[in-house]
Amino acid sequence: MKTSKIGPWIAFTLGALYFIIPLIATFEFSLRLKRGEYSFEAYRIVLGDPRFQATFGYSTLLALATIVIGVLLVVPTAYWIQLRLPKLRPVVEFITLLPLVIPAIVLVFGYLKMYNSSSLLPLTSSPWSTNLLLTFGYVTLALPYMYRAVDTGLRAIDVRTLTEAAESLGAKWPTILFKVILPNVRSALLSGAFLTFAIVIGEFTMAALLDRPAFGPYLQLIGANRAYEPSALAIIAFFVTWACMGLIQVFGRGARGASPETR
């Protein structure tokens, strides 16, 4: 029996319109800086603003640091949970999901309380150490996405047997982790990395309350004081996010090899 495809197409079209119409409206509004004509003047102003370049560069740097620390924290943890401590999986999953239920503002107030200049570990006492604290905060915020991505990647390969095969061939832990496991979860790692990047680029609360010159507070500042430029910034932010998603697809598809189970 042939099933009608009209219903799914209506649902898809409605869903697409729900997302696309505000975007088109924002884009159209961002082009109306000059009266009576469409122009990219708002984009020129935004992209030419030294504060845009400085804050975007700062957030990009912190995003990269967050990705490195996140990978170093999550990959060995997820690997050991999968290999040796599967009973701890629910506990670790619960911990990694906490940032989704604890608002960033609660986290940052906790940080300010714990790491203020009169505490035992005064991480807020200098710009450098505050940057470090902000990076750790971002690692926490990105934890649910990074852990899920890596864990899914590890589940798609037979971690235990691959580890044992490498061990029987004389390999030690660093070789197993970097030569056998990591290359086989590359696309999962990239997914986690790009999601982390997208989160860090748009994050406002932590950066604002820790008083760091990040892209999120800049977005808010422009939004509060200008009319057309915030729309241009929103479109740029969307573009950056989409670029990240596109890169996930490109690199994910390009990942070589597959285990027999995943073929």
């Binding site: 390969i157 047997t161 691959l162 095969a165 029987s168 086989n184």
Partner: peptide, 13 residues
Amino acid sequence: VGMVFQSYALFPN
């Protein structure tokens, strides 16, 4: 010792 597994366990990468 050399080991051969039921699931082959070749390194996919």
